[in-house]
């Protein structure tokens, strides 16, 4: 079992959270002009990295807020968490 640091509730056990999948993707801005290939890549294709992975979790058994986490998929270590709209530390992204 690993703990996830909820931005609102602090370190809480994994079982209080639901997984929301890959958070490195963002919904295309102009869907009406998007090509079929670009839609396909957004909906179905994943980087699936072995290492740091940006992902969504929801604190379903707690405050019910969504958050983003950076977790190492080869060790289960949670490297960072952030509230929506906040930059995710260590992920190299800017927001």
């Amino acid at each position: 079992m690993f703990n996830i640091r909820c931005p609102w509730c602090g370190d809480r056990p994994e079982i209080e959270f639901s997984y929301g999948g890959d958070a490195s993707r963002s919904r295309p801005d102009a869907p009406e002009t998007l090509s079929d290939d670009a839609w396909h890549d957004y909906v179905f294709i994943r980087d699936n990295p072995a290492g740091p992975h940006a992902e969504y979790w929801q604190h379903t058994g707690g405050c019910r807020q969504w958050l983003r986490a950076l977790r190492n998929t080869t060790t289960h270590e949670i490297l960072a968490t952030a509230a929506p709209g906040e930059p995710l530390p260590l992920s190299g992204e800017r927001k």
Binding site: M1, Y19, A50, T73, T74, H76
Partner: peptide
Amino acid sequence: GYNTYTQRGN
């Protein structure tokens, strides 16, 4: 239920 390559679960 979450991405992992570890061959061990929880």
